[in-house]
C-alpha cells in the first residue's frame, strides 16, 4: 500500500513536470531551439500568483482588489495575471530569440544565438524577481487548502491531478490543432524547414509567435498549479522544476508532445521511488544517470525522431 501511494505521488509530481516538458518539447520540435527561458516563465507566473494573493504588489493593490473583487474570486485574478505576464514575457523573448536565429551570419555558431539570449533572459527575470521580492521562499495563501481526495486509502492531490488532466487535455488539443487545422499544417511545415515554408507562402513571422504564446501559457499554468500545490514559491523554483522537465523531455524524445507526457511521468515516478528506496540525497543520480544513458544509447528518446536537434552549434 505504501509503495502504491508512492507510485501515485510520483505520477502526481510527474504531472507538474509534464506541462513544462511539453513546453520545452514544443519549442525544440517546431523551432529547433532549446528554450532556457521556460524556467523563468514558470517562476514569473508562480511569483505573480503569490504576489496577487499575498500582497506582493503593496497595500494599494490589495485594497483595490478587495474593493472590486469578492474574496473567493481573488485566485481567478491571480491566475489571469500570472497567465498574462508569462505570455507577454514569452512574446518579448520571441523578438530576441527566433527573429535573430533567422538572420544568417555565415558562422557555425548561429544556433547558439537564441540559446545565449534565452540564458540572458533567464538571468534577467530571476534577478528582477529577486530585486522585487528577495530570495526567501514565500508561502502562498492557497484558496484550496491542502486539497486532497482519498480514494480507497490512497491520497490524491487535487492540483497535481488537475495538472495531469490539464496537460493531457492541452496536448490532445495541440495534437488535433497540429494535425487538422491550417495553422497546424503551417507549423509543421516550419518545423520541417522554415525557408521552404516561407517560399510556399507560410507567414512565418506571424505564426511563430503562436508557439511562444502556447509555451508561455503552459509554463504559467504549470507555475500556478505548482504554487497551489506546494504553497511555497521562490525565485529559484523554475530551475529545479525545469531541469527535471528537460530530463523528461529527452526521455520522451525531443519534439514529441506525447513523448513529453510519458517522459515527465517517468521522471516524476523515478524521483519519488528513488527517494522512497534510497533516500532524498541520492535522487539526482538515477534521474540524470538515466538521462545520460538515454542520450548516449538512444538520443532520439523513447518516441522521438532522429532528425530533431541535429543542427550544428
Amino acid at each position: 500500500m505504501l509503495l502504491l501511494q508512492q507510485i501515485v505521488n510520483g505520477l502526481m509530481l510527474g504531472g507538474v513536470y509534464v506541462m513544462v516538458a511539453v513546453a520545452f518539447t514544443l519549442t525544440i520540435g517546431m523551432l529547433n531551439f532549446l528554450n532556457f527561458t521556460i524556467p523563468a516563465l514558470f517562476m514569473l507566473a508562480a511569483m505573480f500568483f503569490w504576489a496577487t494573493l499575498g500582497g506582493g504588489f503593496g497595500s494599494g493593490f490589495t485594497n483595490l482588489l478587495n474593493h472590486w473583487v469578492p474574496q473567493s474570486m481573488h485566485w481567478v485574478v491571480a491566475a489571469g495575471l500570472a497567465l498574462l505576464v508569462a505570455i507577454l514575457a514569452s512574446l518579448l523573448i520571441e523578438r530576441f530569440t527566433y527573429r535573430y536565429m533567422k538572420t544568417r551570419f555565415g558562422d557555425a555558431t548561429e544556433h547558439a544565438i537564441p540559446l545565449v539570449s534565452s540564458l540572458g533572459f533567464l538571468i534577467m527575470f530571476e534577478h528582477l524577481v529577486i530585486m522585487t521580492w528577495g530570495t526567501d521562499p514565500l508561502s502562498v495563501n492557497s484558496p484550496f487548502g491542502t486539497a486532497t481526495i482519498k480514494v480507497g486509502g490512497l491520497l490524491f492531490g487535487v492540483p497535481q491531478l488537475l495538472s495531469l488532466v490539464f496537460s493531457i487535455a492541452i496536448v490532445w488539443v495541440l495534437h488535433i490543432m497540429l494535425m487538422h487545422t491550417k495553422t497546424g499544417r503551417a507549423l509543421r511545415s516550419i518545423a520541417e524547414n522554415p525557408d521552404t515554408a516561407l517560399m510556399l507562402g507560410v507567414d512565418v513571422q506571424r505564426i511563430v509567435p503562436l508557439v511562444y504564446v502556447v509555451t508561455g501559457g503552459l509554463c504559467a499554468i504549470a507555475g500556478i498549479l505548482f504554487a497551489i500545490n506546494y504553497r511555497t514559491v521562490g525565485p529559484y523554483i523554475g530551475d529545479q522544476v525545469a531541469t527535471v522537465a528537460i530530463a523528461g523531455m529527452v526521455l520522451g524524445g525531443l519534439g514529441n508532445i506525447w513523448g513529453a507526457i510519458v517522459g515527465g511521468l517517468i521522471v516524476g515516478l523515478l524521483e519519488v521511488l528513488s527517494t522512497y528506496w534510497f533516500g532524498a540525497d541520492i535522487v539526482k543520480v538515477p534521474v540524470w544517470g538515466l538521462l545520460l544513458l538515454v542520450l548516449i544509447v538512444r538520443p532520439s528518446g523513447l518516441f522521438g525522431h532522429a532528425t530533431i536537434g541535429k543542427g550544428k552549434f
Binding site: 525544440i28 529547433n32 532549446l34 544556433h111 540559446l115 528537460i246 529527452v250 525531443l254 538521462l291 545520460l292 542520450l295 548516449i296 538520443p299 536537434g309 541535429k310 543542427g311 550544428k312 552549434f313
Partner: peptide, 9 residues
C-alpha cells in the same frame, strides 16, 4: 551526441 544533445549530455 551532436548539437543540442551534446549540451544536454
Amino acid at each position: 551526441t551532436r548539437g543540442v544533445y551534446m549540451v544536454l549530455a
